[in-house]
């Protein structure tokens, strides 16, 4: 698993170095701040979906949950809710959404793809309906604004708020996945759900937890995105973000078959995706090529991963055979 991170880290360093050499402004504080900000936003979503992917599931509703949370926040601000209460209510709503997904997947035995696809449509529809599909801003809630999208100056470098959120989320997620029994159970059940159940693991509860984490982080990203852009389009905010989140998770070493994934890998992968966009813009490559380049890089990254894995498996087999002789 360590090897997975090395591959993606190498890719990151390569693109970073290449762009830095090609464009003198790349290393400016302003640009790096932006890069850190967007990477953090994507990584938070990516970490969320990584948990679900580790269980062997998928969550397609992330973008719509982001849209819903962002839209409702704007509505609540407009109706003069206490901002703190509004944030708490929306976080609770996100957790509730994850809980419903988890229950439908485990207790009703519905396929995660179907459940979350319906979620994708449903939450988007609700966002548009409750807001009459009107674009909205967030007005002047200064405290929340600086909380979610402010900057903390360190010398001339302003670390953006999403970065601090990411640090907290990543540390907690890393500890959960690698240091607690539940993280171990999650990896076990992702590899082999029946096997985990036969080992006395309450697999349903863990899966539900994974969906809750995913939707919770989607909701958190919704607030972060909303305050970052300071405006919400109920029909568009967050659209397709689930695909970026899934791409980050997969590029970061999660297997869609489940059972594999590292938090650090996902963060680096999210950074790679944002870095690619940044360098496409800075190098003046046509924006029309952007998707093609991102798609290609992800494909190459995943393919390289698979090759490394096979080589390692072959080495292991050789090891075992020689150990026997």
């Amino acid at each position: 698993m360590k090897k997975n991170i090395l591959g993606i880290l190498g890719l990151f360093i390569f693109i970073f170095g290449f762009t830095a050499v090609s464009n003198e402004n790349f290393l400016s504080a302003y640009n790096l701040q932006n890069l850190v900000k967007w990477s953090s936003l994507y990584a938070i979503m990516g970490i969320g979906v990584a948990f679900v992917i580790i269980t062997g599931g998928i969550d397609l509703s992330i973008g719509s949950v982001i849209g819903l949370v962002a839209s409702l926040m704007a509505l609540m601000v407009r109706s003069e809710w206490n901002p703190t209460v509004a944030v708490l209510v929306l976080i609770a709503l996100s957790v509730g959404i994850g809980l419903v997904h988890g229950l439908l997947v485990t207790k009703m035995k519905l396929q995660p793809f179907v459940v979350t696809l319906c979620g994708l449509l449903f939450y988007r529809g609700i966002s548009r309906w409750t807001t009459d599909n009107q674009s909205m801003g967030y007005g002047d809630t200064e405290t929340l604004n600086s909380f979610f999208s402010g900057k903390m100056a360190i010398g001339s470098f302003g670390l953006p708020a999403p970065f601090f959120f990411l640090v907290v989320v990543a540390i907690l997620a890393g500890i959960f996945l690698n240091r607690t029994i539940w993280g171990r159970y999650l990896l076990a059940l992702g590899n082999n759900e029946e096997g985990a159940r036969y080992s006395g693991i309450g697999t349903d509860r863990l899966k539900i937890t994974a969906y809750v984490i995913c939707s919770f982080l989607a909701g958190l990203s919704g607030l972060l995105f909303a305050y970052e852009l300071d405006s919400v389009q109920p029909a568009q905010t967050g659209e397709f973000y689930e695909l970026y989140a899934i791409a980050a998770a997969v590029l970061g070493g999660c297997s869609l078959r489940g059972g594999q994934g590292t938090i650090l890998g996902v963060i680096i992968a999210a950074a790679v995706i944002r870095l690619l966009r940044n360098s496409i813009n800075l190098l003046g490559i046509s924006t029309h090529l952007e998707y093609a380049i991102i798609g290609m890089v992800i494909l190459c990254g995943v393919a390289a991963d698979e090759i490394i894995k096979r080589v390692m498996a072959r080495r292991r087999t050789a090891q075992v055979t020689s150990a026997k002789k």
């Binding site: 464009n23 402004n25 790349f26 400016s28 302003y30 640009n31 932006n34 967007w38 936003l41 995105f225 970052e228 852009l229 405006s231 389009q233 568009q236 905010t237 659209e239 397709f240 944002r274 966009r277 940044n278 813009n281 800075l282 003046g284 924006t287």
Partner: peptide, 18 residues
């Protein structure tokens, strides 16, 4: 930006950088 808000914003940011 294909009507994606965050792309619209980061396009603007990158232009300022470049």
């Amino acid at each position: 930006d294909n009507f994606v808000m965050d792309t619209a914003k980061s396009n603007a940011e990158d232009a300022i950088t470049k």
